[in-house]
Amino acid sequence: MINLIGGVPLYVLEFGDELVYFTPYTITLFLLALTFTVLVLISRPEKQVDIAFGGDAYRTKEISVSEMRFRRFMAIACGLATMGAMVTGDIFNFTLFTAMVGITNVGIVAAVKSLHVQDAAYQYGLVALAATVPLFAGAAIYAAVTGSLSMIELMKGTLPAVPLIAKGMLMLGVIGEGMAPFYAAKAEMFRAPGAPYVIMCSLSSLLLFLRVVEIVMLG
């Protein structure tokens, strides 16, 4: 129905079943994920300042090195999963990367010693967990109806039309990983110090959402 959503594929890497392709749209998203992952790699966490409102007192929160290392690892894993989701040409791989982003998002804030953050991470984890059900179900319906999970094949328009329910489920799955209105728990997670890592939480779900918009318009 709609031609040229993300532009013509500039490069297709056929690597067995693992299909990777770049369009102007996915390259833009991939580069953004890469930029922020590099930022995570090279930057140190900030020292969050707490002010006692109404008084002059303020203090900075310290992040221990071991905590920082773990969170940096999780943030880089999240960045890698996001990059994978941006360039993959296979719907099942996309759902796997999406599920991994959900897990690493919890991981990024899991080491923070704050009750609010832990609570929020737990609630977010539950939502993300539940969201994987429609996510994988959507991919399964794609495979059942069209007999293919390749986005390149879907793009050709020769396969049977994908039912709206499959697209809706795929979309719901990604939205559950942290878009409105399910981001409510996520917003609390941003109280955690460590800006470069925390920013990966919101960046990954935004990029996933942008990618899934492209995917549901195929086929």
């Binding site: 800006a195 920013i199 919101s202 960046l203 935004l206 942008l210």
Partner: peptide, 19 residues
Amino acid sequence: GSILVILGIYMLHKIVEHG
């Protein structure tokens, strides 16, 4: 070019504000 990319950038501005 594609309006979807521009809207993607619009959404990423949010991440920038966050940063």
